[in-house]
């Protein structure tokens, strides 16, 4: 941890300083990176991130995004999600317990008030809790800086009070962001964001002050995306999870990778889906060179062993890339 601030240096850009690019990270090609290693020679850091959520039946309206597809009360969609809390979470936990997988919970922090029994079940298992905003029906679009700060401060306080854990990670509520989200997370000492899907390794994030990394979370392996958006069957999901793992395991022999399975107990824990999912995590955890871990552990290990190396390599790549561009007459 020799770099004291991690503030972008050299060729790195300010976040959102260009209209067509969030400028949250620099282009850094996979080939040629320094080797990233994990504890005990593991090839893949494997983590599972269940989203434990609360969707409000009648949320405060946000003019940029409607909460429910049907007129309120949207009984069908509200109750489909409530299943996760009443039934799904325990079924999912028991499947994960059988294979020694601890969850890193993406938590709508109001669940600490509504359903403290679910938090107890997480703590009994020594699971990590990170923030997924206050409610999954409470979007960041249109928030002032003060409003967005209030959500992050609420998350920090609520999670610490309910669990004793200092918040390490953040997934924006319902994946709704502002231009300042990453800057604020870093300012509040949060270690990692789950919101960027551009890599199979953790990445330094460009923030105005402090340090922040992105940890691969995955939309492609997200149960909701697979079942509801891409409309794949439960058994097909298991095949996809295994194929995703096989490739990351093979690539990880050369350069360490991260595999994440983001879950929603309201989806994966339905009786017609849970066994196929469990078969996939049994397969994954049955391999020798897998680090079965949590988001916080990945972030802490990365900051200690790889962050500075990665930052230096990115700066070098940017410099040499721009020099080549200038030589080729393609530079600005």
């Amino acid at each position: 941890m020799s770099s004291s601030t991690g503030t972008p240096t050299g060729p790195m850009r300010e976040p959102f300083s260009e209209p067509s690019d969030p400028c949250l990270y620099e282009y850094w090609p996979w080939e040629g990176r320094p080797k990233l290693t994990w504890p005990n020679g593991a090839r893949v850091a494997f983590w599972v991130a269940p989203n434990i959520e609360f969707y409000e039946l009648h949320p405060q309206p946000n003019p940029t995004r409607k909460a429910w597809p049907r007129p309120e009360p949207d009984v069908l969609n509200y109750s489909l999600r409530d299943y996760g809390n009443r039934v799904g979470t325990m079924r999912m936990m028991e499947a994960m317990d059988r294979h020694g997988v601890r969850g890193s919970v993406s938590l709508n922090v109001a669940v600490c008030q509504h359903h403290p029994e679910l938090i107890e079940a997480c703590l009994e298992r020594n699971w990590e809790i990170f923030s997924h905003g206050i409610y999954n029906t409470h979007y960041s679009y249109g928030m002032t800086e003060a409003q967005e700060r209030a959500v992050i401060e609420d998350s920090l306080e609520t999670v610490e009070r309910a669990t004793g854990q200092r918040l390490a990670g953040y997934l924006a509520p319902a994946l709704t962001h502002t231009e300042r989200t990453m800057d604020l997370l870093a300012e509040y000492g949060i270690l990692y964001t789950c919101d960027l899907f551009c890599d199979d390794q953790p990445q330094p994030v460009n923030v105005r002050s402090g340090r922040l990394i992105s940890i691969p979370y995955s939309l492609e392996m997200n149960d909701i995306i697979v079942y509801n958006v891409n409309q794949q069957s439960p058994r097909r999901y298991a095949e996809m999870l295994k194929a995703n793992f096989d490739q990351l395991y093979a690539d990880g022999a050369e350069n360490g990778t991260v595999m994440c399975i983001p879950l929603h107990p309201y989806a994966v824990s339905r009786p017609h889906r849970i066994d196929a999912f469990e078969e996939a995590i049994e397969y994954i955890t049955g391999h020798d060179d897998v680090w079965v871990t949590t988001g916080r552990e990945i972030a802490e290990y990365y900051f200690e062993h790889h962050y500075d190396t990665a930052l230096a390599a990115i700066v070098d790549h940017q410099a040499s890339s721009r020099a080549r561009g200038a030589e080729g007459g393609e530079g600005a």
Partner: peptide
């Protein structure tokens, strides 16, 4: 995006 009232 449109701003949000305090009630939000």
């Amino acid at each position: 995006h449109p701003s949000l009232p305090d009630s939000y």
